[in-house]
């Protein structure tokens, strides 16, 4: 049962990831990425990371993809007529990496020890509470730095996208 669920999520994630790159229309790419984010959230739930699944849906699917859709429709992005002519570079980078991966996983013995135990953390454990405690004790300083990153990104985005009102005299 667990393998069936994992197979479904993994298959949909792989197919939609390839569709994001392969589809020529940017709107279809963004929508395909949306489907992928939903299934990644499902995968997080099977991994008992319920808080991250919710955050994935709210932040990625709710905020980031809407931003992408806004920009795609704002700029009236047209269909790519063809791919970049350096696609053979991509082939040279990706095919050896994929072969290395296959050799690595085929050569290494599939030990029974690296198993994701499904029943270690019972359903009673509160994932969000545990993450909150970890975040505000061990990772308190990175948390504050993350807020600084968001502030800088906010100011930077406004300054970059600002139209020069009043011409060059400003």
């Amino acid at each position: 049962m667990a393998q069936l669920v994992f197979g479904y999520f993994a298959g949909v994630i792989a197919v939609t990831a390839i569709l994001v790159v392969a589809l020529r229309n940017p709107v279809y790419s963004v929508l395909s990425l949306l489907i992928m984010f939903f299934h990644v959230a499902g995968l997080y739930i099977t991994l008992h990371a319920e808080f991250l699944a919710a955050v994935q849906l709210i932040v990625y699917a709710g905020a980031i993809l809407v931003l992408y859709l806004f920009v795609v429709m704002l700029l009236n992005a047209k269909q790519d007529d063809r791919y970049h002519r350096q696609w053979w570079v991509a082939g040279f980078v990706c095919v050896p990496l994929l072969l290395e991966l296959l050799v690595l996983f085929a050569g290494g013995k599939m030990e029974p020890s690296p198993l994701l135990s499904a029943d270690q953390a019972g359903p009673g454990t509160d994932n969000a509470k545990a993450i909150g405690i970890t975040l505000f004790s061990t990772y308190l300083f990175p948390f504050e730095v993350a807020s600084l990153i968001l502030l800088v990104a906010m100011v930077g985005a406004i300054v970059l996208a600002k139209r020069d009102i009043g011409g060059s005299g400003a």
């Binding site: 792989a14 994001v20 790159v21 940017p26 992408y68 790519d80 980078v93 990706c94």
Partner: peptide, 19 residues
């Protein structure tokens, strides 16, 4: 790994900045 390599290939072969 499959998803990551798809992303690498996408960065290299697409010509649209949003993609």
């Amino acid at each position: 790994t499959i998803v990551f390599l798809t992303g690498v290939a996408g960065v290299l072969i697409r010509r649209n900045i949003i993609a």
